[in-house]
Design a protein around this nucleic acid. Structure first.
Ligand SMILES: [Mn+2]
Ligand SMILES: [Mn+2]
Ligand SMILES: [Zn+2]
Ligand SMILES: [Zn+2]
Lengths: 133, 133
DNA sequence: ATGTTAAATTGTAATGATTACAATTTAGTA
DNA sequence: TACTAAATTGTAATCATTACAATTTAACAT
């Protein structure tokens, strides 16, 4: 399994956090993950959720999104994709676009570890709500 | 001038904030802007800097970058470009790449207001420092 | 030029996500 | 089963940003 593969100690807390991210592609916050898991794991600490997320991030198993600007969102790292953030409802949705710039980046001489494409605006759903008024 | 063009009330505070961003392409934080300007404008309030930055952002004169994840950075909006963030020294540098995906985004039906390309890693300079060890 | 007023500025207090830390528990190994 | 380094937990601290109320001022009308 992915934890053992990365020499990460297997703990029930890390397992449920990872499982949550696997089943919920909503790009949740640490607090959303914590609040949900707390129900069935009453002893779970929010610090543990933060620690687990940090460990998983460092190993490249998940990635943190800085898209909203006031909280981190988390995402299982399943291949390169971009994100759309709705300024009204706050939802973050995947955008399946290739980034053709990865190659060109090499000429700058920096070591590249992450690439994030963030698109912000008003989502289809919120646009319709607006029209009603 | 750009403030008058956008129907923004012209105040000395807004002028110095704008001038600072025009002369400093370092993608500074609100606090960096405040600390520097405070020296020659002792009555300046940090809240005013935040307010000015928000007003300028809303009118699309500047943009805020969420790249670092724990503070906002500000940038005069001079044409589409991307950003590289060094995880070691924290510097943010411009990356002059076109984004060919803008057009393709239209098919999703969302209203696009901002596009951010964030690349994260270790900058050339910090890589050299690392090698020395 | 002066007066008016809605908006901007200021200082302080509050917020809220994240991190620090010390005590306790536990996963992995022998 | 016992050992130990690492993980978990709960609480307190941090720090960027926002809320708010009192004061000042830019823009406009007289
Ligand atoms: Mn995603
Ligand atoms: Mn820039
Ligand atoms: Zn929306
Ligand atoms: Zn660097």
């Amino acid at each position: 399994m992915i934890l053992k593969d990365n020499n990460i100690k297997i703990t029930p807390q890390r397992l449920v956090v990872l499982e949550y991210l696997d089943k919920n592609c909503t790009h949740p916050t640490a607090d959303e993950i914590y609040s949900y898991l707390k129900k069935k794991n009453p002893s779970l600490s929010k610090t543990t959720v933060y620690n687990a997320l940090e460990t998983l991030s460092k190993h490249g198993i998940i990635q943190s999104l800085t898209i909203s600007g006031y909280e981190l969102r988390y995402d299982l790292d399943h291949g390169m994709h971009h994100h759309f953030y709705c300024k009204i409802c706050g939802r973050i949705v995947d955008i399946e676009l290739k980034c053709p710039n990865v190659e060109k980046m090499k000429k700058y001489g920096h070591e590249i570890e992450e690439i994030h494409g963030y698109i912000k605006g008003i989502c289809k759903k919120c646009l319709k709500e607006k029209d009603k008024k």
